[in-house]
Design a binder for these strands. Structure first.
Length: 552
RNA sequence: UGGCCUAUAGUAUAAUGGUAGUACGACAGAUUUUGGUUCUGUUUGUCUUGGUUCGAAUCCAGGUAGGCCAACCA
């Protein structure tokens, strides 16, 4: 029964560490910067980090990497926590890099005392030009020669606010000729007279990422610090700081970040879409954000399944968004309540049906044995989808056509007798007859039809607004396209239509997931109200007929 | 033109020196009161050139291709 699942390279490393006794247990962390909302790429990292903690009986901390007060905000802290919990994960501790500002300051002092850091008065431009290029070594300036005492005093003066932003920085003294640019005396502290979302105005100097992240890992005793590939060149610096500071040796491991077709996956670009009103907000259902996917109707289960299927490796990847759609369809198929909704109605009059209505029952979910049933009303006037009728059907079209029969789902078989058209020649109504012996559940007619249609009773259909979403971008791989990413925005990514739903839709709540029969999966939008019911289309059903029709 | 990382089917991901497998996609068929679901089958792959070895996707060397690195961002 237990087909052993192969390990990804990080699991292999951890199992080796556990086996050889390097660690008794593992501790990972998820370290977002609170400067934007989490997206599906973060979900990959969350599932990896928290998943490892669960898999190996370890723990995972949530640590906000809040070392840059000018871009960070508590709004983002709150959204990040909500998204992680919604995905189904619990952190052992909620920490902030800013919790460690005092310790980090002492660490910097220690480096200065060891002669491994100095205060530099150069401008940003000077520092950049002295840094050299990847092919040319950098040069050290005169400030590198300052004594430890002088540096200590200067750094203390920086801390108490004696200087303005940019006037001085603290640099690690490593090697200006290192082929790795990050080792060319990197800046580790800068002056920012800015209000911090947690420490307020206590500090006017803030550590850089490279002087905060590894040390924070070390302070928390993180065993496996997992990040994305672009941090590989930072690893020597990560190790250098830990070694010189003589603190707990956390280790960094890097995996390839997620890229998805037809979307962008950078907080900077997503922020731009929000700020420039290309979308309604971070939680716009077209956004690849966790909050957008949630509003769209994606389930945590489906996102976790997706992260599981895409795997973890070190090569760059571009995952087809159809895999994400497959995952959500697979989950929703099992849990969604079936309902009938007609989007583009065509009236049918059943000429041999009595004037009184009849109550029929139908499954809430044929995939769920405990799903139960519901009542639906049936009468001589019903609505079907315009697409479900063709006056001159092609071969293999087994919907309604003149003289052809179809089953109305959970009701009767009907036959199309007459087509009514308006002056312009548009079909406006169909006259049909029904087969009384063909009632669902007690069919004695002996008639077999190929097609089954969804329908609603014209008399009690409920009008709803349905928001249909398409991909946000027209290009599959935006990073490979010329020009600005916004040139590839799909102008038709939102299409609002009216649907005519069976009355049971009035009982819908925000937790419900629906399958509108033969159409797709839907959920109530947060904008919905009693007066105006609004649904989001999560994803369509697979439509092999549409594919077939396209071929012809 | 420096350093680092990576290269297996259309897209991902396994095979840890010994039969190249899995998922999604695509295609074909069966079932179906959702042209959904389910089931069955088919299809396509080790970047390249050498070397080591009885045996190489795997180890070594050269090439090629892609990615990352020169923010007082993370």
């Amino acid at each position: 029964m237990s087909e052993e699942k192969s390990l990804n390279f990080i699991e292999e490393i951890i199992e080796e560490h556990l086996k050889e006794g390097k660690y008794q247990s593992i501790l990972t962390r998820f370290p977002p910067e609170p400067n934007g909302y989490l997206h599906i790429g973060h979900a990959k990292s969350i599932c990896l980090n928290f998943g490892l903690g669960i898999e190996y009986n370890g723990k995972t901390n949530l640590r906000f990497d809040d070392t840059n007060p000018v871009t960070e905000d508590t709004e983002y802290v709150d959204s990040i926590k909500e998204d992680i919990q919604w995905l189904g994960f619990n952190w052992a501790n909620e920490f902030y890099a800013s919790d460690y500002f005092d310790t980090l300051y002492e660490y910097a002092v220690k480096l200065i005392k060891k002669g491994l850091a100095y205060v530099d008065d150069s401008s940003a431009e000077e520092i950049a030009s002295q840094k050299g290029t990847p092919t040319q070594p950098g040069v050290r300036n005169k400030y590198a020669d300052r004594t430890a005492e002088e540096n200590l005093q200067l750094f203390a003066d920086m801390k108490v606010g004696k200087y303005t932003d940019g006037e001085k920085v603290l640099r690690a003294k490593i090697d200006m000729a290192d082929p790795n640019m990050h080792m060319r005396d990197p800046i580790i502290y800068r002056i920012k007279h800015a209000h911090h979302h947690r420490t307020g105005d206590k500090w006017c100097i803030y550590p850089m990422y490279d002087f905060a992240h590894g040390q924070s890992d070390s302070i928390e005793n993180i065993t496996h610090s997992i990040c994305t590939l672009e941090f590989i060149p930072h690893r020597p610096l990560y190790d250098w700081c830990i070694e010189k500071l003589e603190i707990f040796p956390s280790k960094q491991y890097e995996f390839a970040r997620l890229n998805l077709t037809y979307t962008v996956m950078s907080k900077r670009k997503l922020l731009q879409l929000v700020n420039e009103n290309h979308v309604s907000g971070w939680d716009d259902p077209r956004m690849p954000t966790i909050s957008g996917l949630r509003r769209r109707g994606y389930t945590p289960e489906s996102i976790r399944d997706f992260c599981d299927r895409i795997g973890v490796a070190k090569r760059d990847n571009l995952i087809d968004v159809s895999l994400l759609e497959f995952c959500v369809r697979e989950h929703l198929n099992k849990v969604a309540l079936r309902r009938m909704v007609v989007f583009d109605p065509l009236k049918i009059t059943i000429t041999n049906y009595p004037e009184t209505a009849e109550i029929l029952t139908t499954d809430n979910n044929p995939e769920d044995p405990n799903g139960g049933v519901r009542d639906i009303s049936f009468s001589k006037e019903i609505l079907i989808e315009k697409d479900d009728f063709m006056e001159n059907p092609p071969k293999k079209y087994f919907r309604l056509a003149p003289g052809q029969m179809v089953r109305l789902k959970s009701a009767y078989i009907i036959k199309c007798d007459e087509v009514i058209k308006d002056a312009a020649g548009n079909v406006t109504e169909l006259k049909c007859t029904y087969i009384p012996e063909s009632k669902s559940g007690s069919d004695t007619s002996g008639i077999h039809v190929k097609g089954t249609l969804h329908w609603v009773n014209a008399a009690d259909a409920v009008k709803v607004e349905v928001r249909e979403y398409d991909r946000l971008f027209k290009a599959e791989d935006i990073s490979s396209e010329e020009g600005d990413f916004k040139d590839y925005i799909n102008a038709n990514s939102l299409n609002i239509v009216t649907g005519y739903a069976e009355p049971s839709i009035l009982n819908a709540n925000n937790e419900n997931r629906f399958q509108f029969l033969r159409k797709g999966y839907y959920c109530l939008d947060k904008d919905s109200s009693k007066e105006k019911i609004i649904f989001n289309r999560t994803v369509t059903l697979k439509d092999t007929w549409a594919k077939e029709a396209k071929k012809a």
